[in-house]
């Protein structure tokens, strides 16, 4: 009995220590990436290439999901608002929920599973096939040459993707609310513009998406660089990237929302 209790505490302790150790390692890695980021801006082509892989290749999924989320918001929002006779507030509902929350959060989740997992898999595979070691032996720092451009590519792509998601969502809401159901187009846009504030709503949404971009890219490059150099290790790292960055997005979203929109 005592043995079981002891081994339980031992397991908890070991888990805590390794979690803290990993977090510290991740933080140091983040610092290294930042310090060695010079070349990803001096040789901007390296970073642009990663913007292509994480941003452009995520466009389709972001645009389509944004459109559908907006359309669903339009339908559900209309249904609810119509009970209180305030259908003309549909534009406000759709745009505020997208710009403040759904745009950054859903785009961030999609970005984590589309681009984040790809970054982890790519870096992990380069490690498993000794490409990173080979680069290091050629006196080319793999963190500067491989990791930093992917990190910054993600950080640049994410806010743009979130903005596209929100814009497509508003259009989707317009399509359903105005074109399909037939609420008044003037009050749809007019009420929206009257109650969506640039600084309070849109700018905060952009800040959220930048924070999510940093979080997802950081998790993705770290998990890739830290993965075990085997096929199984890479696949586990990819899964961890999606899980960790999704949780990070939701947790950070709560913190940011309570900082931004309280009072």
């Amino acid at each position: 009995m005592l043995d079981r209790i002891l081994s339980f505490f031992q397991a908890v302790g070991a888990g805590t220590i390794s979690a803290v150790w990993r977090l510290g390692f991740a933080a140091r890695f983040f610092g290294m990436v930042l310090i060695l980021s010079g070349s990803s801006f001096r040789r901007i082509n390296l970073t642009l290439r990663e913007v292509y892989f994480s941003g452009v290749l995520s466009l389709v999924i972001i645009l389509v999901s944004g459109l559908f989320v907006g359309m669903v918001l339009g339908l559900q929002g209309y249904d609810t608002l119509a009970r209180y006779g305030s259908e003309e507030a549909l534009g406000v509902l759709v745009s505020l929920s997208l710009v403040r929350e759904l745009g950054p959060v859903v785009a961030g989740l999609l970005f984590a599973s589309r681009a984040g997992s790809a970054i982890t898999a790519e870096i992990g595979l380069m490690k498993a096939t000794e490409q990173l070691d080979a680069m290091d032996m050629m006196a080319v720092n793999p963190i500067a040459r491989v990791v930093a451009p992917r990190f910054w590519g993600g950080v640049i792509s994410m806010p743009l993707l979130a903005a596209l998601f929100s814009a497509m969502g508003v259009l989707g809401g317009y399509l359903v609310g105005v074109v399909m159901i037939g609420t008044d187009s003037g009050s749809f846009w007019g009420q929206m513009q009257a109650s969506v504030d640039f600084q309070r709503d849109i700018l905060n949404g952009v800040i959220k998406s930048v924070v999510f971009g940093v979080a997802v890219s950081w998790v993705a490059v770290f998990e890739g660089y830290d993965s075990d150099a085997t096929a199984e290790g890479v696949s586990r790292a990819t899964t961890r990237t999606v899980v960790t960055s999704s949780l990070a997005i939701l947790g950070l979203d709560f913190i940011l929302t309570s900082l931004m929109f309280r009072g």
């Binding site: 595979l125 096939t129 000794e130 490409q131 070691d133 080979a134 032996m137 050629m138 006196a139 720092n141």
Partner: peptide, 20 residues
């Protein structure tokens, strides 16, 4: 170390070519 490594080079077991 990097200065020294420019004067040496290493062939890895499976080549470690950059696949992309």
């Amino acid at each position: 170390l990097y200065a020294l490594r420019r004067r040496m080079s290493m062939l890895f077991q499976f080549g470690a070519l950059f696949t992309d």
